[in-house]
Write a protein that binds this DNA or RNA. Structure first.
Lengths: 150, 150
DNA sequence: GTTATCACTTGCTTTTTGCAAGTATATTTT
DNA sequence: AAAATATACTTGCAAAAAGCAAGTGATAAC
């Protein structure tokens, strides 16, 4: 899948970033990949923020178009696909990290996340190489209770 | 103007960031303030990305609610207001900087911007203190030609 | 006092998002 | 082998948000 060159005509770096990954759902998908090591459609769907399935599909397509992620058949379960960060995607880690550092100063944080923030200050390189190796930095949070049925 | 605590119930740092400033127009307003030193409503409106006036109004209100910017009457022209970054807003500079650095690796950049990227590597602290001092890092680009009338 | 500037607001159209249900293909179960 | 299940979507419709043009109110300039 190729990317449309009509997009990105501004020469502004922020505009380019915003067009490429700067919307709520793209950023949350990147978080899922980098922090939680998620790589499957249903894993992204299961996030607490409750992305709609059609929106997830369009966002993944867009990220693939932009060369941020790749999509491959899972060799061990051929009805599944595995999404991975490209080098261009991995290079977004500093953006995600700086968002986390900022939020860490302005919201209340649980101990697990505080520990990750501490690690970020002491071992940023290690965090970056974990992201590059698709190694989760945090266990994914338990899904929030859904509406009861029955 | 106060901020609604019902928002931000997730304990995820990325979700907090995304809810606070993570949409196209908020990020572009922050760019206008940090890179170009813009501080007035009509300056934000004049950006090349062509934000709609009602959308700009809601974004500025939101950023004010979240404590990212403040709004004050301009003492020298009492029909105008001046928006400024709060400390919380200034602390977002690393996020903007990392977006610029990333984009700088994946798009073609004109010499003025390339120079800023170079400076960012050599003198990050200086850049941060310019942002804190509301000193523009780049001259604002000329407005793109609008539709002719007449 | 008439006109212009500045920062919006209002009303309406178009686009995007959200939601529920359905489809296609691969795998597991019976 | 047939039926049920898993996985990754697509489709159709309603609701929300964004975009557009025009209007308002409070200063300020002429």
């Amino acid at each position: 899948m190729k990317h449309d060159p009509k997009k990105h005509q501004s020469d502004c770096m922020i505009a380019y970033g915003v067009d490429t990954f700067g919307d709520r759902w793209s950023l949350l998908v990147l978080r899922d990949m980098m922090l939680y090591g998620k790589c499957r459609y249903n894993e992204f769907l299961a996030s607490n923020e409750q992305i709609a399935t059609n929106v997830l599909a369009t966002r993944l397509k867009h990220l693939e178009c932009e060369g941020i992620v790749t999509k491959e058949r899972d060799p061990e379960n051929r009805r599944s696909y595995v999404y991975s960060l490209t080098e261009k995607g991995v290079q977004l880690a500093p953006v995600i990290i700086e968002i986390m550092r900022w939020s860490g100063n302005y919201m209340t944080i649980n101990p697990r996340r505080r520990k990750l923030l501490d690690r970020l200050e002491k071992d940023r390189e290690g965090v970056l190489s974990d992201i590059r190796a698709s190694k989760p930095l945090l266990a994914p949070p338990p899904p929030r209770p859904r509406a009861a049925n029955g």
